[in-house]
Design a protein around this nucleic acid. Structure first.
Length: 314
DNA sequence: CGGTGAAGTCGTCACAGGGA
DNA sequence: TCCCTGTGACGACTTCACCG
């Protein structure tokens, strides 16, 4: 193994791709693949023993004066496994895009990191497990989000599905009508069950939200309200498109609805992705701090050993 | 106090990859 | 092959600090 410098522990890519794991395998240098590392300005080229060439980026650079060159703790960050082309004929942007699109998800990366190091927190596979626990009935589920489409349809997104909502039994309340029709099996103040239009799903309205009919007429409008505050959080329209439109426009309506559902889901996905990305970056920063500390400790330890050795030699 | 640039946030699009 | 999900890119918008 030849290495010019101590490089950062593999962070970005899967641990399976890492050359060695400095935190874990201090005494297991033999199992590491052979690498030849040629440092360049920012990145370095690593040739693995199996002939695979890859680009390596140095995240943490050891001080130039460092004398620690133990092969056991040398780790590299593999940025891309795309083969390096001699002429570099592919445009930079294209390469960059290729690299970016091939990155594994933050969840994957973090979970792999966490499986290696218990200090690294895992990202939950499923968001809202606690919420799901609230629901006990098999037909009950907790919608991640309730939306109104531009066509006026009121839908809930749950378990990756968009489900239209309606009211199977409407109670009249002094000009306002509640869509909250059944009590929760586990009674909870302000909690309610909402029945899906296809009767296949019921939704548990959390946070004491109730659905109030806010307008009468051809297109009923509903508001999500908290019983405590009484403030309307949003106005939604629960009319079914098919009840108002000709069959010819239903197709276009369906396309629009599908598009809106897709946009909605993508919006949520983007939010979730950004959240994970932040978590991931935070995790990396923590790891950098840990490794820096470790490095510092090792340098001090080495200095102390050197001192002892020099004293003995004298 | 208004103009301005940097940084952050959000929604949308495009696309790769995985599962059915 | 199709559909869905995750994620980078991009533009629009907001917030904030700085400056004249």
């Amino acid at each position: 193994v030849t290495m010019d410098s101590l490089v950062s522990s593999q962070l970005e890519s899967s641990l399976n791709d890492s050359v060695t794991d400095g935190e874990k395998d201090h005494g297991d240098a033999n199992s590491s693949p052979q690498v030849l590392l040629k440092t360049e300005s920012e990145a370095a080229v690593v040739q693995l023993s199996d002939g695979l060439t890859t680009s390596v980026q140095r995240l943490i650079q050891a001080p130039q004066t460092s004398v620690i060159q133990s092969p056991q703790v040398q780790t590299v960050q593999i940025v891309t496994v795309a083969e390096l082309e001699d002429g570099g004929s592919v445009a930079n942007t294209q390469k960059r895009r290729e690299f970016l699109s091939r990155r594994p998800s933050y969840r994957k990366i973090l979970n792999e990191l966490s499986s290696d190091s218990p200090a690294v927190p895992k990202i939950d596979e499923e968001k809202g497990e606690d919420e799901a626990a609230v629901s006990s009935s098999s037909t009950e589920s907790v919608p991640n989000s309730i939306y109104q489409t531009s066509s006026g349809q009121y839908i809930a997104i749950t378990q990756g599905r968009a489900i239209p909502l309606t009211s199977p039994a409407v109670e009249t309340l002094q000009g306002a009508q509640t869509l909250t029709v059944t009590g929760s099996p586990t009674p909870q103040t302000g909690a309610a069950i909402l029945q899906a239009a296809d009767s296949s799903h019921q939704f548990f309205l959390q946070g004491g939200q109730v659905l109030i009919q806010a307008a009468t007429g051809d297109i009923p409008a509903y508001q999500l309200r908290s019983p405590n505050s009484g403030l309307a959080q949003s106005i939604v329209m629960a009319a079914s498109p098919s009840s108002m439109q000709s069959p010819s426009s239903q197709h276009a309506e369906e396309i629009t609805r599908k598009r809106e559902v897709r946009l909605m889901k993508n919006r949520e996905a983007a939010r979730e992705c950004r959240r994970k990305k932040k978590e991931y970056v935070k995790c990396l920063e923590n790891r950098v701090a840990v490794l820096e500390n470790q490095n510092k400790t090792l340098i001090e330890e080495l200095k102390a050993l050197k001192d002892i050795y020099c004293h003995k030699a004298e």
